[in-house]
Simulated assay, not measured.
Amino acid sequence: MRKDTAFWKQLKEEMIAAAPELGIDKLRVTTADPFLELKEQLVRHRELGHESGFEEPDLDLRTEPALIMPEARSIIAIAVAYPSKMKGAPVSEPGKRRGILSRSAWGEDYHQALRRRLTKLAEWIMERVPEAKLMSMVDTGALSDRAVAERAGIGWSGKNCSTLTPEWGSWVYLGEMITNLPLPPDQALLDGCGDCTLCIDACPTGALVGPGQLNAQKCISFVTQTKGIVEDEMMAKIGNRLYGCDTCQIVCPVNRKIDTRHHTELLPDPEVAKPLLRPLLTMGNREFREKFGSSSAAWRGRKPIQRNALIALGNFRDAESVPDVAAVLRNDPRPVLRATAAWALGRIGSPEAVEHLRDAQSSEKDDEVLSSIARALSL
């Protein structure tokens, strides 16, 4: 690739100009240098026990692009804006209570949406530089999407641990492409949060332990994606969230009045993004895939969603759902769901709910479920 600096500068300018036609809302470039400051942060994060468990465990892979592509010279960062408001949202009412998916799970699974755009970008580059080497990643890659985006100037690092863009706030999906092309890098943006701490103050569980510092073990977004039994105190704070949590983004002043709707595949289906809770309890795998399979919320399967639906019904104290919740406690083969159903019945607290708990106490064999029943009866 014997091309001069002017060629790479021109290629980058043309790439940025072509981005909207490729479905990309913002494109910037950074070097493939190691992310040394990020590595220090990740080491401290691990030492404090604040990881979620979903991350790439190798900190070197997360911070050294050359380990992923030895020829790496640049990283292209992209952002795609998604909607923050739901038009025609169905009403949650007694007997027909509804849960909610976080905005990042509305519409088409963003992994697919961004991979499609990165594929188009790769084709655009290869037409002009056939010898280019390219490697794309979206969320599940080793590199930190946010660290790449922030060093490339897509946005700055918000105190809520989101990347905040001047144009679309934090309502953006991020992806990147490592390449051997020596593209000129962009400058990082200055911090735009100032003295604001609204996100930290609003976090329901105190998971934001400091500006840009998240204890994932306490974060509702991460907890809703786990598969085990959730602590009682945490369940009470989950509310009706079925997947993810948007609180720290909703209160952010940068995000106010931003609602980007020009990518139609990312618009929410209200019946998917805000589904009825009771039907979820008896939903089989096939029906779950048909309803939620195109959403990023489906990646952990139906069990977390069903568990979170039980939590939501308990938090609504929805007495009309007692027969449905009791059926889970009585019949479901999964101890996690039976234990959660017991908590939900205790939270509802009606005479009918208490009667079901006492009946289950006499027949249940699992120790954790029995413990949950006992706590529920003491509420």
Rank of each mutant, 00 (worst) to 15 (best):
R2V: 15
G194L: 04
Q112V: 15
D259V: 06
L48Q: 12
V29T: 04
F54R: 14
A81Q: 03
S170K: 05
D232P: 12
G212S: 13
A105T: 05
G88I: 02
E352P: 03
L42E: 03
G244N: 12
G155M: 02
L310G: 02
F54H: 14
A18T: 04
A132W: 07
G192A: 11
T119E: 11
P182F: 04
V223P: 01
E231R: 08
E93F: 10
K257C: 13
V148Q: 00
P20E: 06
V336S: 05
E231S: 14
A81T: 01
M283E: 07
A72E: 05
D195Y: 12
W8T: 04
F222Q: 08
E233A: 14
M235H: 07
N308R: 10
N285A: 15
Q249H: 13
D232I: 10
N240F: 12
E290N: 12
V209Y: 05
Q225K: 13
L61V: 13
G314D: 05
D195I: 13
K365C: 09
S52W: 07
D4I: 12
K257D: 12
A327S: 13
I348S: 01
R103D: 04
K365Y: 07
S295M: 11
P335D: 02
L310Y: 04
W171N: 03
R256H: 13
G212I: 09
L198F: 15
D60Y: 14
E123W: 11
G107P: 01
L214Y: 01
N315V: 08
S296F: 08
I305N: 06
I125R: 00
E71M: 15
S136E: 09
I238Q: 03
W171K: 04
T226S: 13
V369T: 03
L36G: 10
L59I: 09
R2A: 14
M283T: 05
P20D: 03
I24S: 00
K87Y: 08
A202G: 07
P94Q: 07
C245P: 05
L164P: 03
K96H: 14
K159E: 02
L27H: 00
R261K: 10
S92F: 04
T226C: 14
V29G: 01
W168D: 01
V354G: 09
P333V: 08
L22E: 00
L280Y: 06
P279L: 02
Q187W: 14
I78D: 00
Y82I: 08
R103S: 06
T140D: 15
E14G: 06
G175C: 08
L183T: 08
L42G: 00
E64D: 15
T226V: 13
T5F: 15
N331K: 15
P83H: 09
Q225S: 12
G155H: 01
V172E: 02
S102H: 11
E364K: 00
I200N: 01
R289G: 13
Q361N: 11
I154H: 00
D145M: 08
D359W: 10
D60R: 11
G95Y: 08
L281E: 03
I238M: 13
R286V: 14
S321M: 13
L337A: 06
M235Y: 09
Y82Q: 05
A339D: 05
M1G: 11
